[in-house]
């Protein structure tokens, strides 16, 4: 069991290593001179050359990577050309905002997806089922940035009930103590409910825009698996024994039906980080994804590598978590050594 986990961690390490090489090379081969771009078009060639040397851009690509890698294992990802701060400091600054949005999306996605799946199963073939299926298709086919634009126009402009930009209103002070960096959590921990409500309102539209696709996917999967499992012998037998419907639904039918949903949810939650690039930008939400997008547009090479590595690491963590949850839900996975739980 331990060996299997060690193997898995080894594979994840290799994935991260491969990712680091890939993103490092891509960031450097895309057109444009990062030093020139950082200093502007009118700065003298000597000044630009000095920055190139400072960034090691005058060295061969392999040497550049080795130097970057040595720094990365010491958590030194270099300086951002845009913010002129260490990238790791920018990550610490912007990651909590993105985590906050993604966690809220994940909660909505899982709760909404499973709930709608159960409702659709319960009313299979009826209008409720048809409605949920149609809405699910709509959620799946529309990318999050489309929802973001629609929500902005709908709730920011036509019925202006929710804020559409930033993390908090300009008239609201930030949490007095930064404990986690996630405003909603920090406001709660410092007992500022008005601040919490304002921060929560700012999270709503981007979170919902980001989670709709995943929620729709989860609802469809949950429904189809529950419907399929309900035909199986063990469920028929439980019904014949007169097990109450509620118990049958939640204890015997839902649990095994959730396994594919959990796996897909894990991927969807990880994908939210990717979708957040556009959504954060639209809502002018100062998270790591928006920072990453600026980095890409401005060829901020260290920041690009830093952001991609952080998201890669999060992706792996989410996958490990999903494996654990699946192992808990499915004894077969556990017994075959899928996870040490």
């Amino acid at each position: 069991m331990v060996l299997r986990w060690l193997q898995r961690i080894g594979v994840y390490f290799l994935v991260l290593l491969g990712l680091s090489i890939l993103v490092f090379v891509i960031a450097r081969v895309i057109p444009g001179d990062p030093a020139r771009q950082a200093l502007g078009p009118r700065v003298s060639e000597e000044t630009v050359q000095a920055l190139r040397e400072k960034l090691n851009l005058d060295k061969p690509l392999f040497t550049q990577y080795v130097l970057w890698f040595k720094g990365a294992i010491r958590l030194d990802l270099g300086d951002s050309l845009l913010t002129r701060r260490p990238v790791i400091e920018d990550v610490r600054r912007y990651l909590p905002a993105t985590l906050e949005i993604v966690l809220l999306s994940a909660v909505f996605m899982a709760a909404g997806g499973i709930l709608f799946g159960i409702v659709a199963t319960k009313y299979t073939g009826k209008w409720q089922d048809a409605l949920i299926r149609v809405l699910s298709y709509l959620g799946i086919v529309s990318p999050p940035f489309v929802w973001a634009v629609l929500f902005m126009l709908l709730f920011g402009y036509i019925i202006p009930v929710l804020p559409t930009t930033g993390r908090i209103a300009q008239s609201v002070a930030a949490p007095t103590r930064m404990i986690t960096g996630m405003y909603t959590v920090d406001y709660l921990l410092t007992g500022n409910l008005a601040g919490w409500w304002d921060a929560f309102k700012h999270l709503l539209l981007p979170s919902i825009a980001l989670m709709l696709g995943g929620m729709a996917q989860a609802a469809r999967l949950t429904r189809s698996n529950m419907v399929e499992n309900s035909m199986k012998d063990y469920i028929q037998a439980q019904q014949a024994y007169g097990v109450p419907e509620k118990k049958l639904l939640y204890k015997y039918l839902l649990k095994p039906s959730l396994i594919p949903t959990i796996s897909i949810l894990a991927l969807d939650i990880a994908a939210v980080f990717g979708n957040a690039f556009l959504v954060e930008n639209l809502f002018n939400y100062p998270g790591l994804s928006r920072y990453g997008l600026s980095a890409m547009l401005n060829k901020d090479i260290n920041a690009i590598s830093g952001v991609v590595m952080v998201f890669g690491l999060i992706f792996i963590l989410v996958n490990i978590l999903s494996d654990m949850v699946v192992a808990w839900l499915d004894p077969r996975v556990r017994l075959m050594g899928g996870a040490d739980v």
Partner: peptide
């Protein structure tokens, strides 16, 4: 994840 990423800059 929270504390590693969210420590006060």
């Amino acid at each position: 994840t929270g504390l590693a990423g969210c420590a006060k800059p």
